[in-house]
Design a protein around this nucleic acid. Structure first.
Lengths: 129, 129
DNA sequence: TTCATTTAGTAAACATGTTAATTACAAAAG
DNA sequence: CTTTTGTAATTAACATGTTTACTAAATGAA
């Protein structure tokens, strides 16, 4: 098991759930469509993830008063706690990966992946690193 | 749907099934553990994939006479047909991706991904491109 | 206004990802 | 020889990936 997943397994959440919580923690309340884009998830996957995060009380949702199709998702205090308690370790693990490759080559890799991601029909994403 | 998956959807197989067939077509008969490594799949996933490919008659399996724990998987004529009829398109689509990025930068990307893949705890693989 | 179209989100169905447990067999240790 | 340890593959359980279909609501044009 990867070190990141091992850390999250202790908390009882998955990598994808962690990404959703981080997006909400950093970007504030937003609608699912935007969460999906930021976290590199398809909407059907996100639907299930949000259901589970809501059951656990890690997020809260309510309909958008202006557009009743939309909803607004925000991180709950419990969810913010999870982020606060693990963000340091997460960043350290990510830095370790970057250092193993070297800062310059790491940036090159992210650039190439993002360029591929910006074109149609390509599945690569910088988040895969 | 990505162009590769679109092509395979016409044939009725998935990307992973396609990878397994290609590995067997190029590398000849081999045991599941080696297939998994070549196709970047975990054994539990491969177990299910082989079951489906066998049901459709695209592969054939028999136990290894020397080591009864192992089995030997080989591509069936029907499976080889699938490869033969689609390999050209597959290669052309892959070349298109390489050309969009440029040959040199494409090689750089593969090198960086393979270097990451060679280290523990990193999930990136060149096959993701 | 009315109807066609688009957008946001969900549901369903099937395939794979991922981890833990299990079976069967092989190999090494005692 | 037999007990232990390791290996190959499968199974189970749960989460996500992926496509298609569907509902509800907003938009836009006639």
């Amino acid at each position: 098991m990867g070190p990141i997943r091992a850390m999250l397994a202790d908390v009882g959440i998955t990598e994808q759930q962690w990404r959703v919580l981080r997006v909400l923690d950093e970007g504030g309340a937003m609608e699912p469509t935007r969460i999906a884009e930021e976290a590199c998830l398809l909407l059907p996957s996100l639907t299930r993830i949000l259901q589970k995060l809501e059951e656990r009380g890690l997020i809260a949702r309510h309909r958008d008063p202006g557009d009743k199709r939309k909803q607004i998702v925000e991180i709950a205090p419990t969810g913010a706690e999870v982020i606060a308690r693990n963000l340091g370790t997460s960043v350290a693990l990510n830095d370790a990966v970057r250092d193993r490759l070297g800062a310059e080559r790491y940036e090159t890799l992210l650039d190439l992946l993002n360029e591929l991601a910006s074109k149609d029909g390509v599945a690569a994403r910088a988040q895969d690193v």
